[in-house]
Write a protein that binds this DNA or RNA. Structure first.
Lengths: 157, 157
DNA sequence: CTGCCGTTTCCAACGGTTGGAAGGTCAAGT
DNA sequence: ACTTGACCTTCCAACCGTTGGAAACGGCAG
């Protein structure tokens, strides 16, 4: 099988297959005399595994661990579960932050007339707390725990 | 005020201030004879505006629009609300996908013994549906609507 | 032999942010 | 006047995962 075939069968793009090989997530494929990569059914399975894990949001780093455990017949399921739990925690963290953003923005949007007039509570909020009280309430909804907002954004979006 | 001062007062890093200037989100700052950027209170306000919008997850592109509306005294609040609504929709979309990932993964983790034995439903699921029925159920929880999974990941994480 | 499609490698971009290196400036202390 | 340290400048690179494109070659059917 050529790379296009495994791509179609696994749902991983040829670009990404080459990339995964480059970063060492999958071993370098054998080549034909002309330099074409050759794959077998086993590779298709592995790529499907990768794709499913990516669909669940696992990072490539986590994938490396998962693949190692997958191919280790003597693995302890506790190790797999630990990785999964850690990832779940990350996902839930993102969920919380995303939810906070959504709530805050929806709250603002609800109070915006949305007509031809320039007055707009959304802009007022962004411009920095004309109504300090209300603003403070919205902020505390976010910052429970005082998380660095810069760091926050990176993790979420 | 130098760039470090506005950075402290606005909460936007000096790196990002220069970046925002480079991409045209904010106009190029005036310079001293030595080439130092000079800022005033107005710039601090603008950067605070930017930071708050970024904290709410607005993209730089959306920020460009928001800044334009902010400085336009004749704006219609409807335009602001439209941008906000669109962003809310994006956030809610990400929330849904993230929630689906979390649910699926939690479901798998719950059924994993997490002991010394190698048997692991998480790996089995990733490896591709030993129990096809259950697997299918989990998948449909995701793909309601048949969204391209590749596109999905990009949007969410 | 000529198309056409698949494959190869390499380079770039996305978005937003951070880090570091190499060098110039400013203000305070000695 | 000189040093020191904190600040500023630009430029380049990296993160992460994915996509796009260009230029060149292989494989196969007509």
């Amino acid at each position: 099988m050529n790379i296009g075939d495994v791509s179609r069968e696994s749902g991983v793009s040829t670009k990404m297959i080459r990339y995964y090989e480059e970063i060492g997530l999958i071993p370098a494929a054998h080549r034909t005399e002309a330099g074409y990569r050759i794959y077998c059914e086993k590779d298709v399975h592995k790529l499907r595994f990768i794709r499913r894990a990516r669909d669940l949001g696992f990072s490539v780093t986590q994938l490396t661990e998962l693949l190692a455990l997958w191919s280790d017949g003597h693995r302890a399921s506790a190790d797999v579960k630990r990785i999964a739990r850690q990832h779940i925690a990350e996902l839930e963290h993102k969920l919380q932050e995303l939810q906070a953003m959504t709530d805050a923005l929806k709250h603002l949007a609800e109070h915006c007339h949305g007509d031809h007039r320039p007055e707009c509570p959304i802009l007022e909020d962004l411009a920095g707390a004309i109504e300090v009280e209300a603003r403070h309430m919205d902020l505390t909804r976010f910052g429970a725990g005082g998380v660095d907002p810069v760091r926050r954004k990176k993790e979420i979006l």
